[in-house]
Every structure is written in C-alpha cells, then in structure tokens.
C-alpha cells in the first residue's frame, strides 16, 4: 500500500508516493531523479549512497524513506554553489581523489561530515573514518590526501 512521504531535500520541500519498503536511496534516485547518490551494494557496506540527514552523514540505504518524514536531507548535488565546487570537491579534483567516480559522492559527503566533527583530522583518523566507504580504484591514497587538503581549506 503506497504511502506519502514528505521531507526537505537539498533545500526544497518534496513529497512522493512510496511503498513502505522503499529505501531513502531509492526515493532519492527514483522518485526525485537525483542520481548522484549511488548504490554499490545490498548490505550497507560500500558507502556510495552516503547523504546528510539533518546535517549528519548517513548511508541512505540504511533508512526507509518513511523514516525520513520531515527530515532535512542533503545529497551530493547540493554541495557546489553556482557552479563553484565545495572546497572538499575541489580538493578531490586537485588531488586526483577519484577515478571512476562511482564511490565519489559518498566519499565526499562522508568527508564533509568528518571535517565538521574534526576540523583537522590526522591521516589515521581519516582512514578510520572512511572504513564505511569502499573505493576499488584509488587505493585510498589520494582520497586521504584530498580530505587533508579539503579540511585545510574548510578551516580557512
């Protein structure tokens, strides 16, 4: 039986009809057609679907859409403003922190949340924070470098 769900996504109030079993990531991708949030697994391991819910990074495959009734959700599409990359996005570009790009939205959303919690993370802290995000291309070397650089810019 479809139910109606309403929330704020990237600053816009949205609502849609979903089955109760619909995951937040499905709602974002299929109902809202915001396809920057990716699905890389079915066990909440890969982190390609990380978004922010009420300002905190969450794997959007771990939430039902109906659980997010009234929530404030931000996806990768909200980070750049007027075509200008967010400092973390720019750091990934400058430091070759992405290759195929599939895990990248989740990595960036996760990294932005890390820096909010810990403005000056060490390499070890970055590596530990990223344990919920899988990348098969980069070996993480340049992702870690990107996040260090992004954190520095975000600190100002």
């Amino acid at each position: 039986m479809p139910v109606t769900v309403s929330m704020t996504v990237n600053g816009k109030e949205v609502s849609g009809e979903v089955e109760p079993r619909t995951l937040l990531v499905q709602f974002i991708r299929e109902n809202l057609r915001l396809t920057g949030t990716h699905v890389g697994c079915d066990t909440s391991q890969c982190g390609a679907c990380v978004v922010h819910i009420n300002g905190t990074s969450v794997k959007s495959c771990t939430q039902l859409a109906v659980q997010c009734e009234g929530a404030d959700v931000s996806t990768i599409e909200s980070l750049a403003t007027d075509g200008e990359l967010h400092p973390m996005q720019e750091a990934f570009r400058q430091n070759h922190g992405l290759q195929c790009g599939f895990c990248t939205p989740g990595m960036v959303m996760s990294a932005v949340d890390l820096v909010k919690e810990n403005p000056n993370p060490t390499e070890q802290e970055i590596r530990e924070w990223l344990e919920g995000n899988i990348c098969r291309c980069t070996g993480y070397h340049n992702i870690v470098k990107s996040i260090k650089a992004g954190a520095e810019t975000m600190r100002g």
Partner: peptide, 15 residues
C-alpha cells in the same frame, strides 16, 4: 571528467 563526477552529474548505467 571530474566536475561531473564530483557534482553527482555522472551518467552511469543505473542513472
């Protein structure tokens, strides 16, 4: 290619 990947504008098959 990075701008589109970083902004969620990649065009993967499932998209």
């Amino acid at each position: 290619e990075d701008y589109r990947f970083l902004t969620g504008n990649g065009n993967y098959l499932d998209d």
